[in-house]
Amino acid sequence: MQIWLVSPLTSILLWSILLAVFVVVEMATVNLVTVWFAVGSLAALISSAFTRSLLVQVVVFLVVTAVALAVSKPFMDKARHMRPAAPVGLERNLGRQATVVQPVRPELPGRVQLDGVDWTAVCETGLAEGDLCIVTGISGTTLRVEPMRQPAHSTEV
């Protein structure tokens, strides 16, 4: 079994290089592709301080990698599917309420205000100044809006 014995410097170099490669690949992909291998490499690097046996170091690498993968993967999958990605850019305005500041006619765009910003708006029905509307779409810098449905008024007895 002499073949599996290596010098401490060789072990440190081997596991340090592998650790660096796995970390660089993980940073480049950011998809949790090699993070488990990096953890295994770190464990093998630490084990190289206690044994010269490359076989033991490889077993430590494989076991720690497998355990890290088995323990963390279910949590990562659950976190990834827990909530949908937040809308970004103009998409975050969809479904939001705006106020008409210049009448909107079916054949003529008007203006609405959303978060203090004036937007050009189009609507299939007419909207008067001061009406509330809901943003249903975005085309360039023009919002598609619909009249806000008013809740049915209940009659008090």
Score class of each variant (00 low, 15 high):
residue 145 V to Q: 01
residue 12 I to K: 05
residue 2 Q to F: 01
residue 135 V to L: 08
residue 146 E to L: 11
residue 118 D to K: 09
residue 70 A to C: 04
residue 131 D to M: 01
residue 13 L to C: 14
residue 99 T to W: 01
residue 17 I to T: 15
residue 138 I to W: 01
residue 38 A to D: 05
residue 69 L to S: 06
residue 117 V to H: 14
residue 78 K to G: 00
residue 98 A to R: 07
residue 43 A to V: 12
residue 144 R to M: 14
residue 142 T to M: 08
residue 66 A to E: 04
residue 76 M to R: 06
residue 29 T to W: 08
residue 73 K to Q: 11
residue 84 P to R: 10
residue 82 M to H: 12
residue 97 Q to K: 15
residue 136 T to I: 09
residue 106 P to H: 09
residue 104 V to W: 03
residue 126 G to Q: 02
residue 8 P to C: 07
residue 151 P to Q: 03
residue 61 F to R: 08
residue 49 A to W: 13
residue 110 G to A: 13
residue 41 S to F: 07
residue 70 A to W: 06
residue 69 L to H: 06
residue 25 V to D: 04
residue 2 Q to T: 05
residue 78 K to T: 04
residue 88 V to W: 00
residue 40 G to W: 11
residue 135 V to G: 06
residue 29 T to A: 12
residue 150 Q to E: 03
residue 32 L to E: 01
residue 43 A to H: 12
residue 95 G to C: 04
residue 12 I to A: 14
residue 74 P to C: 09
residue 148 M to D: 03
residue 120 T to I: 13
residue 59 V to N: 02
residue 110 G to H: 11
residue 80 R to L: 05
residue 76 M to Y: 06
residue 108 L to E: 15
residue 124 E to H: 12
residue 86 A to E: 13
residue 26 E to T: 04
residue 19 L to S: 12
residue 16 S to L: 14
residue 44 A to C: 12
residue 29 T to N: 11
residue 8 P to I: 06
residue 2 Q to R: 06
residue 12 I to D: 00
residue 111 R to A: 15
residue 125 T to A: 08
residue 143 L to I: 10
residue 41 S to T: 08
residue 133 C to Q: 01
residue 115 D to M: 12
residue 70 A to K: 06
residue 60 V to L: 11
residue 7 S to R: 10
residue 77 D to G: 00
residue 49 A to N: 07
residue 10 T to Y: 12
residue 54 L to R: 05
residue 138 I to D: 01
residue 27 M to L: 15
residue 10 T to H: 12
residue 139 S to V: 10
residue 94 L to T: 02
residue 66 A to V: 11
residue 123 C to P: 03
residue 92 R to E: 08
residue 45 L to S: 05
residue 126 G to Y: 00
residue 116 G to F: 07
residue 79 A to I: 01
residue 47 S to C: 11
residue 39 V to C: 10
residue 11 S to A: 15
residue 49 A to P: 00
residue 52 R to N: 15
residue 89 G to W: 00
residue 66 A to M: 13
residue 156 E to A: 12
residue 104 V to S: 04
residue 61 F to N: 04
residue 104 V to Y: 05
residue 19 L to V: 07
residue 4 W to E: 01
residue 3 I to A: 14
residue 82 M to F: 03
residue 89 G to V: 02
residue 18 L to A: 13
residue 63 V to N: 10
residue 27 M to P: 02
residue 59 V to R: 01
residue 16 S to Y: 12
residue 143 L to Q: 10
residue 57 Q to L: 09
residue 84 P to D: 07
residue 132 L to Y: 03
residue 1 M to N: 03
residue 142 T to H: 09
residue 124 E to M: 07
residue 133 C to N: 00
residue 39 V to L: 14
residue 94 L to W: 03
residue 86 A to Y: 02
residue 157 V to Y: 05
residue 32 L to N: 07
